[in-house]
Computed example of a mutant assay.
Amino acid sequence: MSVAFTKEESFETASETLLPDRPVSAHPNLVTQAGFAALEAEMETARVAYAAANLIEDVNEKRRQAATPLRDLRYLSARIRTAQIMPEPASLAAVAFGSTVTFARDDGRVQTYRIVGEDEADPKAGTISHVSPVAAALMGKAVGDVVTVAGHELDVVKLG
């Protein structure tokens, strides 16, 4: 193996392991208590993965294996540091952070979502981010109120 090949391989490996940081939202980092616990659990998982990667003897493989957990550790550290744990909604009178809201769309669909932090949002699991267009439009609304999102009407039918 030539020296040139070794250097090229090392350069390629190094460029593979320089992962860009995960983008951090400019919005306030509001989280539920469960969302904060999930961030902490993800942080521990990333720590374990990073520690395991550092046990690898081959330098290039160590870099490859450590890149993702290291990036996740930077992201999760920032999110945990800036997290604002929000209390459960005090009232069911209006949509608030942490509320579960059911609304009817103008196409006849009825949907229910809980409004949560950005990192814990998963629409397929019934949660949406407080900064999503739907959640932003529903904040402060009460049962019977109608909002328009992307040209579609949403009628608040239940808070719970």
Rank of each mutant, 00 (worst) to 15 (best):
S15K: 10
L18A: 13
G126W: 08
P123G: 00
A150N: 14
L159D: 04
P28M: 04
D155R: 15
S91C: 06
D145M: 07
T100Q: 14
F5P: 02
R63W: 12
H130F: 15
P28R: 07
V24M: 05
M86H: 01
E16I: 00
L76E: 05
E42K: 13
V95A: 07
A121C: 05
V48M: 12
D145H: 08
L138F: 07
P89N: 02
V143F: 12
T148C: 05
E61R: 13
V24T: 14
H152I: 06
A37I: 06
K62E: 10
I56P: 01
L55Y: 06
N29H: 12
A78H: 13
V156W: 03
N60T: 03
A93C: 06
R109H: 14
T32V: 03
D107E: 13
H27Y: 12
S129P: 01
M1K: 11
M139Y: 03
A52M: 08
Y50G: 08
I80M: 06
T148S: 11
P87H: 03
A34N: 08
D145V: 09
V149D: 02
S77I: 01
L138A: 06
K7H: 11
R22Q: 09
A38V: 05
T82G: 08
H130I: 10
D155C: 09
K124P: 04
R71G: 07
A83S: 12
A37E: 15
N54R: 14
F5H: 13
M139V: 06
A49C: 04
I115S: 00
A53S: 11
I80K: 02
E8K: 11
Y75L: 02
M1P: 04
N60K: 12
A14E: 10
M86S: 07
A94D: 09
E118Q: 11
G160T: 11
V131C: 01
I115R: 01
G160F: 12
N54C: 13
F5Y: 10
S15I: 09
L19M: 06
I80E: 10
D72A: 07
V24Q: 06
D106Q: 10
Q33I: 07
H130A: 06
A52P: 05
S99Q: 03
K141H: 12
A136K: 11
A78S: 15
V116G: 01
A104W: 08
D122I: 09
A83F: 03
S99T: 04
A49F: 02
H130M: 02
L76D: 02
T45H: 11
A136N: 04
S10Y: 09
P133W: 01
L39S: 05
S129H: 06
A34D: 14
A135D: 00
V147M: 03
L154C: 09
T100N: 01
A136G: 07
T32A: 00
V147G: 03
N54I: 07
